[in-house]
Amino acid sequence: MGNDPGRGVHDMGGLPAGSVERAEHAHAPWEKRVDALMVLLGSPERRVITVDQLRRGIEQLGTEAYEAMSYYERWMASITNTLLAEGVISSDELGRRMAEVEKRGEEGAG
């Protein structure tokens, strides 16, 4: 189970799994910002990324990454990959900006 050819890592309905872990965490500000990013990019007046593209991007992360990453890390990776693939941003400008942000080391909560 879990290794069916053609079944993606996200496609987990009916597979065996452990008991439901009911502890919940409050969303961190950066997680809310990722969510807001997607809401804005997917809004009817912008339609830069659709929710289907978000999901496809998450499904394409690969098993290891999918299982290792937190929920909003998956979202962020998918959003970024989609923006790169669509040419909305370039890998050069992203790389430069990430290096800048790291250097600033600030919260950047906007």
Partner: peptide
């Protein structure tokens, strides 16, 4: 675990979120 909230160095994806948001 979700990354710690705003304390300590930014995680890779927190950094990415800030960068992508600023560019957009």
């Amino acid at each position: 675990r979700p990354p710690p909230d705003e304390d300590g160095p930014l995680s890779y994806y927190e950094t990415m979120e800030i960068a992508v948001r600023e560019i957009l």
